[in-house]
Nucleic acid binder design. Structure first.
Lengths: 226, 226
DNA sequence: CTCGGAGGTTTTGTTGACAATAAATGCCCC
DNA sequence: GGGGCATTTATTGTCAACAAAACCTCCGAG
């Protein structure tokens, strides 16, 4: 995370962070109907800041809100999750292309170092889960910010990733193809290092498409039920 | 708009709509610092709902908010506006592809009818401005919803279009190439009618890319100063 | 004359109480 | 006994007062 302050600046921010992580980690289950007063007592807040946070979360699509009828956590169907990957495919493809054009040499070096550490974690068996969950997130995060496209990064990091991560937590064994994913990551970074934006875009799109197909297959097999 | 209720259901929604249109139309200028109490008196609201609306607008990127220091309307530079078009290019490309695969025959017929009415407006000289502003929006709106990709439509209609429209209003003569744009629209609809998703995506990307280059050129010429 | 700090003022952030609306329950009628 | 309507209740939406923080101004010293 790029958050510099561990302590949130305002109560509303605090509420926002709490609720967001609670939703992403599954502490608040999808489809669960939640009352405002209950949330207040659970997170030690008052209703003012809470409502502000709820508004923000609603406009980010993490929860839905019917007037006078309460708030419930959004529940994403399997089909919708796959649609999310379709969006990621084109947006992260663009991010990779722009990253290849705009990342500094230092950033590229850091990106490579990141992959090195990921490789070590995979070699140690227990690191596998971490790599899939946080490591992958880390990689894509760097490329999104490296695109130097503020709105693109905001949309990817602020909107899409939280929804995807919501399911990463739940089905932590989601991909289960760490070596393959790492190899694909390496190729993407290679293209970025060579400043080949077109190739980077192509490889990134293929990478995410592969992840989508993998999930699709597992859903069909009944391994993942959403 | 798909809004069925002209009157907003709750005060916060009302505040949200008011502020959003005020920002988009330029009634609230970019970079303008605005106080909460002033907004309350201007739109006949109280601070509770207003703050909720401000939170939503912030998370949509239409305004920025420093703790204890107030709110100011976001000001998008020329470079950032062009970056927005890069995002639109890939996202609307995807929308066009999915629309080609998923739109019903009725929707396609309506889309064609929409273009017919646009053509009439262009023939009547005074319609030109309308076409560029609302007509173009209408066309892209239909394709976004036709993609049957809820999140994609939400991101396009909820996030990107408002930022683009913000500048459409200001520089209403933005494109000024109505006949060409209409022809491109026709080709895209044709591809959709033939269920050729790949072609629809290609044409849409080229269409938006052309619009971006057009704006870029005008900025270089000094016609548009942002 | 300029720079720094302390105080005041304005503005934001927060709180708790009040009002309005929708869901739930129980009652009456069929 | 079942269905529909009215009442009740709990929850959300709204408001106005309070607390805290930042900006501005004014004063003094260098």
């Amino acid at each position: 995370m790029a958050e510099v302050t561990l302590q949130s600046q305002t109560r509303a921010d605090e509420a926002f962070d709490c609720l967001q992580t609670a939703i992403v980690t599954g502490e608040l289950a999808p489809g669960e109907k939640i009352g405002e007063v209950e949330l207040c007592s659970r997170f030690n807040l008052t209703r003012g800041p809470l409502r502000e946070a709820l508004g923000r979360l609603e406009s980010r699509g993490l929860l839905v809100r019917r007037p006078h009828a309460g708030v419930k956590v959004v529940s994403v169907s399997a089909a919708e999750l796959l649609e999310l990957y379709r969006i990621r495919e084109v947006m992260e493809g663009l991010a990779a292309r722009q990253a290849a054009e705009r990342m500094t040499d230092e950033e590229i070096a850091e990106l490579q170092a990141t992959l090195d550490s990921h490789e070590k974690m995979i070699e140690q068996a227990q690191g596998q889960a971490y790599y899939q969950a946080e490591g992958d997130y880390d990689f894509h995060h760097r490329i999104a910010t490296g695109s130097r496209n503020a709105k693109l990064a905001q949309m990817l990091l602020g909107d899409l990733y939280y929804m995807v991560r919501m399911y990463r937590y739940r089905l932590s064994t989601s991909a289960g193809r760490p070596h393959l994913a790492l190899r694909e990551h390496r190729r993407i970074v290679e293209a970025i290092a060579q400043r080949d934006g077109e190739l980077a875009e192509f490889l990134m799109k293929r990478h995410i498409n592969a992840a989508r197909i993998n999930i699709e297959k597992k859903i069909e097999e009944g391994v993942l039920t959403i």
